[in-house]
Write a protein that binds this DNA or RNA. Structure first.
Length: 417
DNA sequence: TCTGGGGTCCTAGGACCC
DNA sequence: TCTGGGGTCCTAGGACCC
């Protein structure tokens, strides 16, 4: 049996935690650069505000409806997410943190009352963190996802749905269109429809071999999971990352090389920070630079470069990223976005040093450790590589950002008596 | 004017090996 | 006239996820 705990409208709910005046009111949260609506409170959904709609297209509408708008505040969401996970760990020993707002776990119910267990989880998270969640339970992860969806959609279930008996499973699967199933995206849904498969039930009843032939082994597994045959295990130990990316759109378009060099330097050193947090070294680097894809004359290019030796030194990452992006740059375009990816990662302690080639000197490691420590203690960006520049006009737009209430001393809430 | 930022897995096809 | 068979590794691209 798998349980999936999924936070309701997570980012919007986070914003409401420290703004209780906004409970029961329409709230939306925007993506980086205030680009899209990425989270909507139940009230905002009820107003018919669609998901992933460009902000500029509905800004007027939001104002008219009196919707409160927030830029995304990942420091806050990450911290509240950690608290939700900590709470859940008190009720189950096997826990998989699947995403910032979803946790799979094995229900622990010595008395056999699964439903009661679901409600216990829900109440505990609300009590400790003030985040509303839904709980779905079923014999496979894919079905637990569906159960969770039902828990939120069907009011009578009060946020907890157990999908155990075959007749319940069939009832739900007959109602679910394929595109709402975990592992089936828009493309597959369309191709499935061409084969006459429209509902979850029709997919579950299809011939596995035929599905495998048309779509590959991944969708065949999904099919089996819908039948109640578990193919996906709980993954408690997150496997080390295979690539680390830092990419971002600029707050304003860049017509010269200078802001691009600065932004790319920042992305490289942020990627380095993540790399060091995982105790890994990178062997090669992927760098790209692009205009807006909506430009009349869009342009983009990318390069993969070998680093001189496996490294986690931000100074080296920045130097190589800047070198690459200089090569990619072309006069006459207005660039919108660049990014740095670190590839061929290896665990730092397992590194095989090559007898005949240079390796990362010890003082690099020492310097980076000190840098990370200072930034951890006093806030990100206290010490940084000078190549990032000081004015940072290209920084992303975040016109509606809330405070980092739980992670920055300077932004603690103020209580007036 | 304004359109996100991360990730993963799988497959097909080419190069190369004996 | 007749031209093998099996394997590995790598990469790019396509699909998916939140």
């Amino acid at each position: 049996m798998f349980a999936l705990v999924d936070c309701n409208s997570f980012y919007a709910s986070c914003e409401q935690v420290f703004r209780p005046d906004l409970r029961g009111k329409p709230v939306v949260v925007l993506s980086n650069n205030d680009g899209f609506v990425v989270a909507r409170s139940a009230e905002a959904k009820a107003l018919g505000i669609p998901d992933l709609v460009p902000f500029f297209k509905i800004e007027g509408q939001l104002k008219r409806y009196g919707v409160t708008v927030f830029s995304s505040n990942y420091a806050l969401y990450g911290d509240l997410s950690r608290r939700v996970v900590d709470t859940l760990k008190g009720f189950a020993s096997d826990v998989e943190v699947y995403s910032i707002d979803e946790v799979f776990l094995t229900p622990w119910t010595p008395d056999g009352d699964v439903k009661q267990f679901g409600h216990t989880l829900k109440r505990a998270v609300w009590k400790n963190v003030r985040i509303p969640v839904g709980v779905g339970m079923a014999p496979t992860k894919t079905l637990a996802k569906l159960a969770n969806r039902a828990a939120k959609k069907i009011g009578a279930l009060q946020g907890v749905c157990i999908l155990e008996r075959d007749n319940q499973r069939e009832w739900l699967l007959r109602k679910v269109p394929t595109k709402d199933i975990w592992g089936v995206g828009g493309r597959y849904a369309k191709r499935l429809a061409e084969l006459g498969i429209h509902s979850g039930w029709e997919l579950a009843c299809a011939d596995p071999k035929r599905i495998r032939r048309h779509f590959g082994v991944t969708l065949e597994r999904t099919l089996m999971e819908l039948r109640g045959v578990s193919c996906l295990e709980l993954e408690e130990m997150p496997s080390p990352k295979q690539q680390i990316y830092c990419t971002r759109s600029f707050g304003e378009k860049a017509h010269t090389l200078e802001p691009i060099l600065e932004a790319t330097a920042l992305y490289a050193s942020r990627a380095g920070e993540k790399l060091r947090a995982q105790q890994q070294l990178a062997t090669s680097m992927h760098v790209f630079l692009q205009t807006s894809p909506f430009d009349s004359n869009p342009y983009s290019d990318a390069a993969v470069i070998q680093l001189p030796y496996p490294t986690d030194d931000s100074r080296i990452l920045v130097r190589y990223a800047q070198y690459a992006v200089t090569k990619l740059y072309k006069e006459g375009f207005s660039f919108l976005k660049s990014g740095v990816g670190l590839l061929e990662l290896s665990a730092k302690e397992l590194l095989q040093r090559d007898l005949f080639s240079e390796g990362q000197p010890l003082r690099s490691t020492k310097l980076m450790t000190v840098m990370d420590k200072i930034n951890q203690e006093f806030g990100r960006g206290t010490v940084y590589v000078a190549a990032e520049g000081t004015r940072k006009k290209w920084r992303m737009r975040q016109s509606h950002k809330s405070r980092r209430t739980t992670t920055a001393w300077a932004e603690l809430p103020i209580v007036r008596c």
